[in-house]
Amino acid sequence: MKWIYIFLAILGGMMIGIQSPINGSLGKKIGAVEGAFVSFFVGTMVLAFLVLFFGKGHITDLFQVPKWNLLGGFLGAMFVTFTIISVPKVGVAVTLLAGIIGQMAISVIIDHFGLFGMPKNRIDINRLIGIGLMLTALFFLYRGSE
């Protein structure tokens, strides 16, 4: 049953893969920060619709959450902005793999120390080799795009 979540994660990754060149093109036309703003504005409108008609949570509890929980929006905005800046310069594949490597590097640190209330999962040689192989792939993707 957990495979559905892996499938959803793959689908989300594919959406990021499609979103990146679209946002990169938008950013070249209207500016990187402006492109990120438009992207988040459209996303905000879609999410407002979903919350209004399908939301079952407790959005009114927003003011009770720890303030650090609100950093997700800031971090997402920075990710989209950095992607918009990078895609036209190094391409979609290199940009996204570099982003995934960044995600994996910070995620193993978060797992290792159990940061943000996550369960601990120690860094081991297998995880380090996995990141090393991703760095190797990045090297070859970048070299192949020059």
Rank of each mutant, 00 (worst) to 15 (best):
H112A: 09
I18Y: 06
I123M: 11
I110C: 14
L47M: 15
M45L: 15
A77W: 00
A48F: 13
A36H: 00
S145M: 11
F113V: 09
G31H: 09
G27R: 12
A9H: 06
I101L: 10
Y5P: 08
V80L: 03
S107C: 12
A32P: 12
L70D: 00
M1R: 11
P119G: 07
E34N: 14
G91Y: 09
G76L: 03
M45G: 11
P119L: 06
L11I: 06
I129W: 08
L133H: 01
I18R: 01
V51L: 07
V90K: 02
P21K: 02
M118V: 12
A9W: 07
A137E: 03
M78N: 09
P88V: 10
V38W: 04
S145K: 14
D124Q: 02
I110Y: 13
T44A: 14
M134L: 15
G12Q: 01
I106Q: 02
M104P: 08
I85S: 03
H58P: 08
F41G: 00
T95H: 01
R127Y: 05
L128D: 11
L8Y: 12
P119A: 06
G57K: 10
I129N: 10
A9K: 09
G114P: 02
G31W: 08
F7G: 05
I129Y: 08
M104S: 12
T44G: 15
V94K: 04
L52Y: 12
R127L: 13
L75N: 12
M1Q: 08
T81A: 13
N23K: 00
R122S: 15
L47E: 04
F63T: 09
V108D: 04
K120H: 11
Y142V: 02
G13E: 06
K120D: 01
L8H: 06
T95G: 00
V46S: 04
D61P: 08
Y142S: 12
M15K: 05
A105N: 03
G24Q: 04
V94W: 04
G144D: 01
L47R: 08
M14I: 14
A32L: 10
A137D: 02
M1H: 11
F53C: 01
F63M: 11
V51H: 00
L128I: 15
F49T: 07
D61L: 13
Y142M: 05
L62T: 11
